[in-house]
């Protein structure tokens, strides 16, 4: 059976400044494992955007990363308000982020489009009032 490396992180929803902690850990791990820098970049950025989304919209969440021999899978799940219209949320430039977040340089409606752009496969499942699950797969 092929080895699968699993990493789990809790993304703190209270602290905007700590967003990126999980992505930084994953980046470090992939670097140690000798992955190509461009692949590491794609994984790190896709995951960071996801982390930021969970902090902005969902009060944090959980991140699970599985490193398979041929792909890296990122599963982000939260118990936030959910996304009513996923197609609309996927549209570049559409955002419901508050002004405070925009002042930090986020909330430009680029998060989900960036995540899609950097992954080979992305799926968003969401139930309003229950939460959102995002799966991203990046082939190695």
């Amino acid at each position: 059976m092929a080895d699968v490396l699993r990493l789990h992180f809790t993304v703190d929803g209270e602290d905007f400044t700590s967003a990126g902690e999980a992505s930084a850990q994953v980046k470090k791990k992939l670097r140690q494992m000798g992955y190509d820098p461009e692949l590491i970049r794609r994984v790190s950025i896709a995951m960071y955007e996801g982390e930021i989304n969970m902090v902005i919209h969902a009060g944090g969440g959980e991140a699970d990363i599985c490193i398979y021999p041929d792909k890296i899978e990122i599963l982000l799940s939260d118990k936030g308000p959910g996304i009513a219209d996923i197609a609309l949320a996927m549209r570049a430039g559409y955002s419901t982020a508050p002004e405070t977040v925009r002042n930090l340089g986020f909330g430009a409606g680029m998060g989900l489009p960036n995540m899609k752009r950097y992954s080979d496969f992305m799926n968003v499942e969401s139930v309003v009032g229950e939460g959102t699950k995002v799966t991203m797969i990046i082939n190695t």
């Binding site: 905007f16 400044t17 967003a19 990126g20 992505s23 930084a24 820098p37 461009e38 970049r41 950025i45 960071y48 955007e49 930021i52 930090l104 340089g105 986020f106 430009a108 680029m110 998060g111 960036n114 752009r117 950097y118």
Partner: peptide, 25 residues
């Protein structure tokens, strides 16, 4: 930041007026 993230390439200098901690990430 979200814009920069997809355009800024490895080994480039990033010029910005943004000064919050997310810039470092």
């Amino acid at each position: 930041l979200s814009w920069v993230m997809t355009r800024l390439q490895s080994d480039e200098a990033w010029v910005t007026i943004m000064n919050n901690v997310n810039v470092i990430a």
